[in-house]
Nucleic acid binder design. Structure first.
Lengths: 216, 216
DNA sequence: CATATACAGTACCGTACGGTACGGTACTGG
DNA sequence: CCAGTACCGTACCGTACGGTACTGTATATG
C-alpha cells in the first residue's frame, strides 16, 4: 500500500480537508454517480493527486467517512450525580442528537454508500459507518444508563439490549424511509417533539417508580 | 414504452417467473455487481429476450421487486372479536413476520438495491419497497390496533404513530445493521423471543389495564 | 540560476456494462 | 413444405469510469 492518508485528527493538510469536504458535498448531490473525475474537477485538483493521497477510490471514500465522523464529535453527558430530571434531560439530548444526525443529508448519503458497498462484499465502509454512528452513540449512552441504574432510576439487565430498545423507540422507521428516498418532515421542532416522546416511552419501559415518567 | 411486463398475478409465463427467480437469486449473491449478461447466462436466456420482456435494466429490477412482493403474501389476522390473549398473539405474529422478512437475505438484497437507486434520484424502487414492506404490514396491522382500541384493550390517538412505535420496538437496529453488512444472530428462535419482547413492550406502552401486559 | 518538489490539467488506456443486431434453431399453423 | 414466431447464443457498439502517464507551472531550496 502507498499514499494512503491516515485520517486521525491533524494528519490532514488544509488542502486535503478541502478535498474531503468537496467529496462529501459531491456524494450528497450525486450519490451513486460520484466519480473521481467529478471530484477532481470540483476540488480543483488532479486525479493523480487524489490517487497519490488516497490510494484508490475506496481509500478516498473511507477517508471521507472518517473525516465526516471526526466532524460530529458531540459533547458527552456527565454520568456523575444523576437525578430523575437530569436523566430524562440526558435521554432527551441523546434522542435528539441521534435523530438529527440520522436525518442529515450527509448521513443519508454516507449510509447509502456504505450499504451499496456491503452489497458487493466490501463491508469495510459498513463497519466504519456502524462504528461511528450507532456504536459511537451506544458507547456514550451506556454509561449514562448504568449510572441511572446505579442511582435506582432505571431497571434493566443488559445495557446493550436497553440501548437497542432506545434506538428503536427513537429512530423507528425514520432511517429506512430516508434511505429509501421517502420525504417527510425532519424539521428540528418535530425532531425535538419525537425525541421527547421516545425518551418518555423509554422511561415508562425501563424506569423505576421514582423517575420523571409521569406522562403529560 | 414497449415490452414492459406487468407483474400482477398471472400475467407472467412460467419462463418469465423463472427468469425473475434467477434475477432474485443473482441479486442476493452478486448484489451491486448484478449484470444483465450474468442474468442471461444464469437464466439460460438471451439478453435480447430480457430487453423485449422488461424494457430495460430498471424495468427488470422493478419486475423482480414486484414478483418478490407477490410471493410473500401472508395470512391476515381477523380483527373480529378480540380479547387480550388474541391481541397479544396477533401482535406477536406481526412482530415475528416483520423480523423474519427483514432478516431474509432477499429482503436485504432488495432493500440495498432500492437504497442505491434512491441515491441516484431514481426513487421508484424505493417507493415500491416501502409500499410492499413497511406500508403493507402497516395496512394489515392498523385494523387490528383499531379493533383493540374499540375493545378497550389499547389506548392511542393515532394508529399511524402507534404503528411507527411498534415498528421501532420490533426492528430496533436490526435492519440497518443487516443492510450495512453486520452479521448477528437471526435464528428463528431468537426472532421469536425478541418479537415476543417487543409485543410485550408495545402493550406496556399502549395497553389499558385489562390486557395481558403482566410481565413474566 | 539550477534543480527538485508538488501539483493542475489533460490526454490516454483498459475494461465493464447497458443495449442492439444478427445468425441459427425449434416449434406452430396452414 | 413453407412462413412466421419465439427464442438462444454471441458478437458487437458506445460510453462511462477507474486508474496511469505526461506536460506545464509555480514554489522552494541550495
Amino acid at each position: 500500500m502507498s499514499g494512503t492518508v491516515e485520517v486521525s485528527e491533524e494528519t490532514l493538510t488544509a488542502r486535503q480537508s478541502h478535498v474531503l469536504d468537496a467529496a462529501l458535498s459531491l456524494l450528497v448531490e450525486a450519490g451513486e454517480r460520484f466519480t473521481m473525475t467529478a471530484l477532481a474537477r470540483r476540488a480543483s485538483c488532479s486525479k493523480e493527486t487524489l490517487y497519490k493521497w488516497f490510494g484508490d477510490r475506496d481509500g478516498l471514500l473511507t477517508a471521507a467517512v472518517q473525516y465526516q465522523a471526526a466532524k460530529v464529535r458531540v459533547v458527552p453527558v456527565d454520568p456523575a450525580q444523576l437525578d430523575g430530571k437530569a436523566l430524562r434531560a440526558g435521554l432527551d439530548r441523546f434522542a435528539t442528537d441521534l435523530l438529527t444526525v440520522i436525518s442529515g443529508e450527509t448521513s443519508v448519503a454516507l449510509n447509502r454508500l456504505a450499504i451499496s458497498h456491503a452489497g458487493a462484499d466490501r463491508q469495510g465502509l459498513g463497519r466504519l459507518v456502524l462504528q461511528n454512528g450507532r456504536h459511537a452513540i451506544g458507547r456514550r449512552l451506556k454509561p449514562v444508563l448504568e449510572a441511572g441504574r446505579a442511582a435506582g432510576l432505571l431497571k434493566f439487565a443488559d445495557a446493550e439490549a436497553a440501548y437497542r430498545t432506545f434506538f428503536g423507540l427513537v429512530v423507528r422507521d425514520a432511517q429506512i424511509r430516508l434511505l429509501l428516498g421517502d420525504r417527510f418532515d425532519t424539521a428540528q421542532a418535530t425532531i425535538k417533539r419525537e425525541a421527547a416522546e421516545a425518551a418518555l416511552e423509554f422511561l415508562v419501559l425501563y424506569g423505576t417508580k421514582r423517575n420523571g415518567s409521569r406522562d403529560a
